[in-house]
Structure formats: structure tokens, C-alpha cells
Design a protein around this nucleic acid. Structure first.
Length: 447
RNA sequence: GCCGGGAUAGGGUAGUGGUUAUCCUGCGGGACUGUGGAUCCCUCGAGCCGGGUUCGAAUCCCGGUCCCGGCCCCA
């Protein structure tokens, strides 16, 4: 017997239905905010991903050569493809662009709870807006989307400008280790290291330990001090444009990303969030590793997912120039669709179809009637050559709520019997009355 | 790439060296060609794969595959 490839899943009817309902609800929220769905290819040139994330991603990417010798890769995420699409065909569309996507992605990783080799992401990108406004909108949208399926995620919002500025007061060789320890929450080693390099007075530890409003106050105090301090590597270098440096470095290879302190911008974002009524925690511990994030970053967590509790991640980044476009800020997030399905509860069950039961003599009439009823609801008919009794039995085990019964008598009188399977109550109805009675019972009503 | 636990009919399971491989459920058929999920009867259907040990392996050993959880990583 042939098995499924490791880390992939089959979705039986009930599960596929749940996924469709959740996807549908979340997409509807995106649409309400004016975001338009786009689609990109399942595979791309490998270079797109190495350019964005560095050669390190090769380990976890499904890459291959096609018959023409091209290096291709199954997409491991969707932000880079969306940005590629923007650069190659949407740069002249009026800004801002509000886009969303849903698609499967592939990573060669060890499967565990909430982690698969083929997984689905749903996300959005807001391209070319003013920073604080865009961030507030996107963060609010993220919360709105997850809440639309009944998930109350724990939203943490951080800001990289401050930490980057602190790091620039340190010797360049110390920075990666410090960054890593923050990300890993290795508090003790971090404290020791900061002390060892004489940086414990900068307030970094206190900053990442503070959460919420307190953190913002602390950040403001720090910013005042930091602004007066010289950087160890001179003034901040602007983001290099693709043209100016040959466009081949990856975001991960230590490109100088804007490191302006910019705390007022972050404060503006935060204050707008209050306008949106977003529920959040300020948390400077979020660093999201990547160098292409330029300012605000955020993540959402949900309980019940074991080691993989993060269901959403996003922020503001500068990727477009890296892919050869004009420098354009973009804010977005990606949702781990599969993880969301793990924690979502209380979805309505699929509505069972109407069963059209008939005696053998009037099969054709029954099929014709079924065809008419399908204009307004889901209808199934027997294909097993069963007798009427057996058809009723089958309808019952399907969970059918209503059965239409048709025999010679009914055909002669031009009526149909509508039987309510719960009560056993039966009524004789004309086709028009029948259509009226069964109402709309299709897929969309189940949501 | 690393660590731990697993894998027996479609689903759920019992069995720890010799059984006709257990039971529940399911599927299909029948009792039942004008009205229900009940009942009864019949049928179908399994020890992940490959080696090894043994007179004999679902059971013990080795390798692989896949699943579950964790580490690493998480764009």
C-alpha cells in the first residue's frame, strides 16, 4: 500500500468542510477591510527564497531542478512570492495595495504538533501606506480575523528600532549573540554577557522584562539616553537600494537595515491601536529574527498547541527593494492556518443533504424532481437499487433531516411527500410548495 | 539532524514465542420492492516493510518507513 508522504495530511469530508468554513470566514473579514485575494504559483525560482532569507533556508526547502535545468523550489512561505508579484506586475497600481492570500506551503522539517511539511498560510500585505497607520490597520485586522473564528489569541507587539539602536552601541561582533539570546529568552546568559561586555547599564534587560505600558515608559526613558550616545559604527546607513549594491545580498547576510530609533512612530501605532480597540501587550522581546523587518513586529499565540503556540506573525518590512523594486514599505502578517484549525471550536456541522426516495417505477420522475430541487438545496438519490424501505434507512444513517418520497400514487396526483425525519411528520406538496418548504439548505447556509 | 513513545481489518482494540488472531464498530447482502437509525442471520476485512534468531515470530533482535510528542529550527 502506498502511504502518504511524511508530514502531509489527507482531509476527509468533515475536516475539509471545517477548513472551508474557517477559510471562508477569515477571507470574508479580509474582504470587509478592502483586501483583495491574489494567488501565486506553488513553485518559484529557488533564488526568490534564498534572496529573501539567505542560503540557510536551503536546508528546509523542497527544491529541485526541472527538466530544463532550472533551480526551482516549492514555496516555503508566501510573503516573498507576493512581493515578487508586486514588483513584477503591480508597481503601477495606485497605493496603497491591500492584498490577501491563502495557499499551501512546504518546508522540509521534522513534523510535530502543529507543524507539517505541507501546511497552509493565510495572510495579508498592505503595501505602500504610511507606517503607523498601516501597522495599526494590519494588527487590528489580524485580531479581527482570528476572532472571526472564535479564537482569542494573545497578541504581543514589539518594536525592533529600539533594540537595534541599543545593539549599535555595542561592538559589532557582540550583536548576533545578544540578539539570539533575546530571541531564545536565555535570560541568565544574556545578563552575564551584557555585564561582561560592559553593556548592562543600557537597560536592555529591563526593557525586555517589562511588558505592556510599563515597557513603553521604559522605552521612552531609554530612548532619551540612547539618542545622546554615539554609535559604535557611525551614523545609520540607509537601506541600500537594489540598484546601488547589485541586489544580490540577502536580508540575512547582515545588510544594514534602517536602524533609526523612531520610537515616536511606534508610539503613534500604539495609540492608533487603541482607536481600533485592539487588545494587546507591548513586548520588546519579540525580535522575529529577520533582518528585513524594519520596525514594529507582532505575534499571536494560542494555548492548546504544545510547543508550537504561535499562530500569527507579522510586521513592517522592506523587501521590495531587495527584489529589485523601488523602496516601498509593506506591512503584513501570516496566519498558521493549520494551527488555527487545531484550536478552533464550535463550528456548525455540515448540513446533511435532502434525500429523494422513490419506488423503481418512478425513478425517472424522481431524478427529474431531484434536478429541480438542486437549484435550491443539496439532494441525493439512491444509486444502489435499493427498495424504498432501505432508502429510508440509508437516509436515516446519513443524518438526513428531510426526505422526499415519490411513488406511483404521487406521480399520478402530481404531488411529493415531504417527510420530516425527526418527527416523522409527512405532507403532500406540489413542486412549488416543496421548493418553498426545503428552502435554501446548501453549503453557504451552514456557516 | 537529535531524543522518547508508538504501528494488529475502513475506525477503535485484545493478545508478550505455539490461538482457527479477540471483541466493538463499520461496509456489503438477507429477513424487508410503499416508509427509519432497532433486532436477527450471513458475508467482507488485519499483525507497517525488509532481514535475522527459532522447530515455530504479531510477539524477541537489527535496519527502514510512517505516526505522536519534544529538541534544533521556525523565513
Amino acid at each position: 500500500m502506498i502511504q502518504r508522504p511524511r508530514g502531509t495530511r489527507d482531509f476527509p469530508p468533515d475536516e475539509a468542510f471545517r477548513r472551508a468554513v474557517v477559510r471562508e470566514r477569515m477571507a470574508r473579514v479580509m474582504e470587509r477591510w478592502g483586501y483583495q485575494e491574489i494567488g501565486t504559483p506553488t513553485f518559484e525560482h529557488l533564488e526568490l527564497f534564498t534572496q529573501k532569507s539567505g542560503p540557510g533556508v536551503l536546508e528546509e526547502i523542497y527544491s529541485f531542478k526541472d527538466k530544463g535545468g532550472r533551480d526551482l523550489a516549492l514555496r516555503p512561505e508566501l510573503t516573498a512570492p507576493v512581493m515578487r508579484m508586486y514588483v513584477s506586475e503591480m508597481q503601477n497600481v495606485p497605493r496603497p495595495l491591500r492584498l490577501y492570500y491563502y495557499g499551501n506551503c512546504f518546508r522540509y522539517e521534522r513534523p510535530q504538533k502543529g507543524r507539517f511539511r505541507e501546511f497552509w498560510q493565510l495572510g495579508c500585505e498592505l503595501i505602500g501606506g504610511r507606517r503607523a497607520d498601516s501597522e495599526a490597520e494590519v494588527i487590528s485586522l489580524a485580531q479581527s480575523v482570528t476572532r472571526s473564528v472564535g479564537i482569542k489569541g494573545d497578541l504581543h507587539i514589539g518594536y525592533l528600532g529600539l533594540i537595534r539602536t541599543v545593539l549599535r552601541k555595542l561592538a559589532a561582533e557582540d550583536r548576533p549573540a545578544i540578539m539570539r539570546m533575546i530571541d531564545k529568552k536565555e535570560r541568565k546568559p544574556l545578563a552575564e554577557r551584557l555585564e561582561a561586555i560592559g553593556a548592562d547599564h543600557l537597560g536592555l534587560l529591563e526593557l525586555i522584562d517589562s511588558k505592556g505600558r510599563l515597557a513603553l515608559d521604559r522605552a521612552a526613558e531609554m530612548a532619551e539616553v540612547l539618542e545622546k550616545m554615539p554609535n559604535r559604527d557611525g551614523p545609520a546607513s540607509p537601506i541600500p537600494s537594489a540598484a546601488s549594491e547589485g541586489a544580490r545580498s540577502s536580508a540575512r547576510e547582515g545588510r544594514a537595515v534602517e536602524a533609526e530609533l523612531g520610537l515616536p512612530d511606534f508610539e503613534e501605532t500604539i495609540s492608533l491601536l487603541d482607536g481600533y480597540g485592539v487588545d494587546y501587550t507591548i513586548d520588546f522581546e519579540i525580535v522575529r529574527g529577520l533582518e528585513y523587518y524594519t520596525g514594529t513586529v507582532f505575534e499571536m499565540y494560542a494555548s492548546g498547541l504544545g510547543a508550537q503556540s504561535q499562530i500569527c506573525g507579522g510586521g513592517t518590512y522592506e523587501l521590495i527593494s531587495l527584489l529589485g523594486g523601488a523602496q516601498t514599505p509593506s506591512t503584513g502578517f501570516g496566519l498558521g492556518f493549520d494551527r488555527i484549525l487545531e484550536v478552533v471550536t464550535g463550528l456548525p456541522p455540515r448540513r446533511p443533504p435532502l434525500v429523494m426516495a422513490f419506488t423503481p417505477q418512478v425513478r425517472k420522475e424522481a431524478l427529474a424532481a431531484a434536478r429541480q430541487l438542486r437549484e435550491s438545496t443539496a439532494v441525493v438519490t439512491d444509486v444502489m437499487g435499493r427498495g424504498l424501505g432501505a432508502q429510508l434507512k440509508a437516509a436515516a444513517s446519513l443524518g438526513a433531516e428531510q426526505v422526499v418520497i415519490l411513488g406511483e400514487k404521487e406521480v399520478e396526483q402530481g404531488v411529493f411527500i415531504l417527510r420530516d425525519m425527526r418527527s416523522g411528520e409527512q405532507r403532500s406538496l406540489s413542486m412549488d410548495e416543496l421548493i418553498e418548504a426545503v428552502g435554501r439548505g446548501d453549503f453557504s447556509q451552514a456557516e
